[in-house]
Computed example of a mutant assay.
Amino acid sequence: MSASGFARLPKPPYYAVIFSSQRTDQDDEGYGATAQRMVELAQQQPGYLGVESTRGADGFGITVAYWESEDAIRAWRQHAEHTAAREQGRRDWYRHFELRIAKVERAYGWNKD
């Protein structure tokens, strides 16, 4: 992720894994450190392109991770440390989540600066 919060991505096509979640009311319980570790670990995986993430004060968040291929997404899903983090998330951190995988065919943006 760049300093602006926007991922720097190549020209499409590529894939987006969209993770929308609602946190439980529990204290952090290691969530922040684990989330940061998952970003650091994902960055080391073949096919990783970038990430954009935000979370509101109400606990609702969206993270979009970008990948070169469905094979890269599958490999990330099977990574042991990521698997353990997912299990802990289901057990401790999330009340509800939705995961969607989409192929990005076209992308454009604008920057006033």
Rank of each mutant, 00 (worst) to 15 (best):
87 E>M: 01
82 H>L: 03
43 Q>N: 05
58 D>E: 11
49 L>A: 00
89 G>P: 06
54 T>Q: 02
25 D>I: 01
24 T>L: 09
23 R>F: 05
108 Y>Q: 10
104 V>L: 04
32 G>L: 05
96 H>T: 13
78 Q>P: 10
51 V>L: 08
20 S>D: 12
12 P>E: 10
65 A>M: 06
95 R>K: 14
38 M>S: 00
95 R>G: 11
113 D>A: 01
77 R>N: 15
97 F>I: 06
96 H>N: 13
93 W>V: 05
67 W>C: 08
67 W>D: 01
27 D>R: 09
77 R>D: 15
5 G>M: 11
75 A>D: 14
60 F>L: 08
23 R>I: 05
58 D>C: 06
96 H>M: 12
56 G>S: 11
86 R>N: 08
67 W>T: 01
109 G>F: 00
100 R>W: 02
88 Q>E: 04
16 A>D: 01
95 R>V: 07
36 Q>Y: 05
48 Y>I: 04
95 R>Q: 13
23 R>S: 14
34 T>H: 03
80 A>R: 14
80 A>K: 14
98 E>L: 13
60 F>Y: 13
21 S>A: 02
1 M>T: 12
60 F>H: 12
16 A>K: 10
5 G>I: 05
110 W>V: 12
61 G>E: 00
37 R>N: 04
78 Q>D: 15
44 Q>R: 12
86 R>E: 13
113 D>I: 08
22 Q>P: 08
84 A>E: 15
33 A>W: 00
9 L>V: 07
20 S>E: 09
30 G>Q: 04
67 W>F: 02
20 S>R: 04
73 I>M: 10
82 H>P: 12
54 T>S: 13
75 A>C: 04
90 R>L: 15
109 G>P: 08
59 G>L: 02
32 G>A: 09
8 R>E: 13
35 A>C: 02
14 Y>P: 11
11 K>N: 12
76 W>Y: 14
13 P>H: 11
44 Q>D: 07
108 Y>A: 05
62 I>Q: 10
55 R>N: 00
72 A>M: 01
29 E>T: 03
32 G>S: 04
34 T>F: 06
19 F>S: 10
13 P>C: 09
11 K>R: 11
82 H>Q: 13
100 R>M: 12
22 Q>I: 03
20 S>T: 13
37 R>M: 11
23 R>M: 10
75 A>Q: 02
38 M>R: 04
107 A>D: 11
103 K>M: 10
4 S>P: 07
9 L>P: 10
84 A>K: 15
113 D>M: 06
23 R>L: 10
100 R>P: 01
57 A>D: 14
68 E>K: 13
72 A>S: 02
102 A>Q: 14
79 H>I: 00
106 R>P: 07
27 D>L: 09
33 A>R: 09
34 T>P: 09
92 D>Q: 15
33 A>C: 02
